[in-house]
C-alpha cells in the first residue's frame, strides 16, 4: 500500500554479551507516524537509535542484520554516518537546545553540513520556526538564548533544529515525557502536521499518546517485536495476548 521508509531485516543488537534486540523484522511506512511501545528496557529506544546509528557511540555494540533506508543498508561498510544523520533527524526525551540563541540553534546543522549560504539563513530559520509554529512567538526573540524559552517551546525548537537539514525521517525518543499534558497535545498536533513531509518514528511510554497520535504501532518486549500493526488494530483487537495485557495495563 504505502511506500516503505525503513526496512529492517533480521536485526540483532548486542551490548557486549547482552542481546538487546532479537531478530527484528519491520517495515516502517513513509510519511506516517509509527509508534514503538513497550515496558522500560524492552529495547524500543535502542531500536530507534539503530536508525541513525547513535548506538555506535556506546562501546561494545554489535549489530547483525540489515536496516535499509533509501535502498541502502546503513550497516554496510563505507556508509557515511554524517550524511545518514543528515537524512535521519532525532528529537530527544528532554528538550536540549544548545545554550546558544534560537537562531544559532537552527543554523547549527546548516553550518555543519555547509548546506546554505549565510544570506539564506534568515529565510531558513523563519521556515523552520513556521513549521513548528513558533515563528509568531519567537520572531522578536531570535537572538535570545534558547534556554529562556518554555519547555514546550524548547522542544519545538529542537524539532525545528532538525528541519533545515531536510531529513526524510524524524526519530522522536519520548519527546513529550518532560512536558505537561497540554504541551504534549500541542506536540502531537505538530507531529500530525509534520507527517505530510516526514516519516516519523516515536518511542513512547504513554499508551494514550501512541493510540492518539500514531498510524502504526509496534509492541516490543524483552528485545523482541511482539506485534506490529495499524494502531487501531493494536489497541482494539491485538493478535497477541501479551500485547493485550500490556495495553490494558496488566504489566509494564
Amino acid at each position: 500500500m504505502s511506500e516503505t521508509s525503513i526496512d529492517i531485516r533480521a536485526l540483532n543488537l548486542f551490548y557486549g554479551d547482552f542481546q538487546a534486540l532479537t531478530d527484528i523484522h519491520l517495515s516502517i511506512p513513509a510519511r506516517q507516524i509509527t509508534a514503538l511501545i513497550g515496558p522500560s528496557g524492552c529495547g524500543k529506544s535502542t531500536l530507534l537509535r539503530v536508525f541513525n546509528r547513535m548506538n555506535d557511540l556506546i562501546d561494545g555494540v554489535r549489530v547483525t542484520g540489515e536496516v535499509v533506508i533509501n535502498g541502502k543498508n546503513i550497516f554496510a561498510p563505507g556508509i557515511d554516518l554524517l550524511s545518514l544523520r543528515e537524512k535521519v533527524g532525532m528529537v530527544f526525551q528532554r528538550p536540549n537546545p544548545f545554550p546558544l540563541t534560537v537562531y544559532e540553534n537552527i543554523v547549527f546543522g546548516l553550518a555543519v553540513h555547509r548546506l546554505a549560504r549565510r544570506n539564506e539563513y534568515a529565510d531558513i530559520v523563519e521556515q523552520a520556526l513556521r513549521s513548528v509554529l513558533l515563528w509568531d512567538d519567537l520572531k522578536e526573540r531570535l537572538h535570545h538564548s534558547a534556554l529562556t524559552l518554555s519547555l514546550e517551546q524548547q522542544q519545538r525548537l529542537c524539532i525545528a533544529r532538525v528541519l533545515p537539514l531536510k531529513p526524510q525521517i524524524l526519530l522522536m525518543d519520548e519527546p513529550c515525557s518532560a512536558l505537561d499534558p497540554s504541551a504534549t497535545l500541542h506536540i502531537e498536533d505538530l507531529m500530525r502536521e509534520l507527517k505530510k513531509d516526514y516519516t516519523i518514528v516515536i518511542v513512547t511510554h504513554n499508551m494514550h499518546q501512541a493510540s492518539r497520535a500514531s498510524d502504526r504501532t509496534g509492541f516490543l518486549y524483552l528485545g523482541k517485536l511482539i506485534e506490529f500493526d495499524d494502531t487501531v488494530t493494536i489497541f482494539t483487537k491485538p493478535a497477541q495476548t501479551m500485547t493485550e495485557n500490556y495495553i490494558s495495563g496488566r504489566f509494564g
Partner: peptide, 25 residues
C-alpha cells in the same frame, strides 16, 4: 553529554562537535 549527542545526531563530525559544541563550554 547531550551537547555531544545532539551535535552528532545532527550529523556533525566528532571534530565539529568538539570544536563547536564542547570546547566553547
Amino acid at each position: 553529554k547531550h551537547f555531544r549527542t545532539v551535535s552528532l545526531s545532527l550529523g556533525a563530525s566528532r571534530w565539529q562537535t568538539i570544536r563547536h559544541s564542547v570546547l566553547p563550554h
